[in-house]
């Protein structure tokens, strides 16, 4: 692979030979063992395999829901006619009415349930759980951007942080994320 590293002459202070030796000196630190390579790829493949088993095309999900609705309706109508009196249809599953801000992105929610549980965009440090440390990462990034210390256009981390999808990441996102972190999960009312 060609070396795409840009020249560093814009700072113009590190001699080329020193820069080259720096790369050589730290190159061995990047070596990974075969065992690690295998572990990462196996874990990823297992993850993908699980996703394949759970992921269905949206048309298939829609078709299945339509078929189920038709079946329920048909059974209901048949029951009403055969019994001669109205019969309650099974209750439709409803998402709990929650006053908490919705922070999971809609793509994830549209995915299989496990995807929504495992892949939380608010898990900013990628440790598999969303807690106050993620809110602190967000708060620091928002503060740095507000101070002009980070360019929003180039700063990946701040760009990832528009959690409620309103086009901007700001203190409201921090508040919303913190509110979600301490939420007790009770249904209001």
């Amino acid at each position: 692979m060609t070396d795409r590293r840009p020249p560093i002459r814009d700072e113009g202070e590190i001699p080329d030979r020193l820069a080259e030796d720096l790369r050589r000196a730290y190159a061995p630190m990047g070596r990974t063992s075969n065992r690690l390579d295998r572990a990462v790829l196996d874990a990823a493949n297992a993850e993908l395999g699980r996703a394949h088993r759970l992921a269905f095309p949206r048309w298939a999900v829609g078709g299945a829901l339509a078929a189920a609705a038709a079946l329920v309706l048909g059974v209901g109508l048949w029951g009403m006619r055969s019994a001669g009196r109205p019969k309650a249809l099974p209750p439709v599953a409803q998402a709990p009415a929650s006053a908490l801000p919705e922070l999971l992105d809609r793509e994830a929610l549209a995915d299989a349930g496990i995807a929504a549980a495992e892949a939380d965009p608010a898990d900013l440090n990628g440790d598999g759980r969303t807690d106050i440390l993620d809110a602190l990462i967000l708060a620091r990034a928002v503060e740095q951007r507000a101070d002009g210390r980070t360019r929003a256009r180039t700063a990946t981390i701040t760009a990832e942080l528009d959690l409620n999808g309103d086009g901007a990441s700001d203190a409201a996102d921090v508040e919303a994320l913190a509110a979600r972190i301490v939420a007790l999960g009770r249904v209001a009312g």
């Binding site: 106050i132 809110a135 602190l136 913190a178 509110a179 972190i181 301490v182 939420a183 007790l184 009770r186």
Partner: peptide, 24 residues
């Protein structure tokens, strides 16, 4: 700190609350 107001207002029998805070 941050906490769920439900623990304060909607709970007759308190069982748990999560409190959290951050500072920059």
């Amino acid at each position: 700190p941050y906490y769920d107001p439900a623990a304060l207002h909607e709970s007759d029998a308190f069982d748990r609350v999560v409190i959290a805070a951050l500072s920059t």
